[in-house]
Design a protein around this nucleic acid. Sequence first.
DNA 1: ATAGGTGCAAACAGTTTGCATGTAT
DNA 2: ATACATGCAAACTGTTTGCACCTAT
Lengths: 128, 128
Amino acid sequence: MTRSTKQRRAIRAVFERLNRPLSPQEILDQVGGEVEGIGIATVYRTIKSFVEEVIIVSVDVPGEPARYELAGKGHHHHFRCTDCGSVYEIEGCVGNFKALTPPGFLVKDHEVWLYGSCSTCRASAGAA
Amino acid sequence: MTRSTKQRRAIRAVFERLNRPLSPQEILDQVGGEVEGIGIATVYRTIKSFVEEVIIVSVDVPGEPARYELAGKGHHHHFRCTDCGSVYEIEGCVGNFKALTPPGFLVKDHEVWLYGSCSTCRASAGAA
DNA sequence: ATAGGTGCAAACAGTTTGCATGTAT
DNA sequence: ATACATGCAAACTGTTTGCACCTAT
């Protein structure tokens, strides 16, 4: 069975604390302060294990390395700020994707990404 | 200025012949038959040069390396077959993404991906 | 003739894995 | 005690770059 180690507890806590899609490096940076000497390999192995246990799910960002977020959030999509690179969760879904489906194809899932400026970046750009 | 070499002509021809989003490796496989001894570095350099000249544009597939397709096709999205991995272009767009935008955020662009089985895979699965 | 292109191999970034050691159970 | 977890370094994949040679202009 999977064990409760300080590394795994700390990584899980980071997901609960930040509550947004995180990259492996972001996780390491966050956890590095708490757990002395933790290596990136442990982060990757823990991610893989958490995904198998469905504690987290992967968020496949187009054009960049995957991020991970807590599982069980229900259907939602993501917004990526093209200024600061942060990824945010957005609620709701505009449907009727099947209308776009070419004949003979079977759609099982879909993904929507919005790109633009997040409120933080808009505020600081306005202030600058 | 950029020159017309047999490698570049062959790579461009592959895009025109296959007319779907291609990965660098797919391009190399296609071109390898025509141009003796062509290397992957040339493919990458040619891709970069074509993107700058807006002959092709990148298609950022969530969770896998970027592909490239001919530029100038107008607004469209993509379908990825989860059985064979091929990416297809789909026409049309279901709008109203702004409705999902969190307050304070500015949406400049969006991307939609459909996942499922392409007609080829559905046909062969039915026959199997 | 010469600037840009090519092939090869080395370098890089992100991710995975082998192995000896550490630790939760 | 022992099986699973960790840290490190090596390996691997996808991509970029340095360098000597080649070729379209």
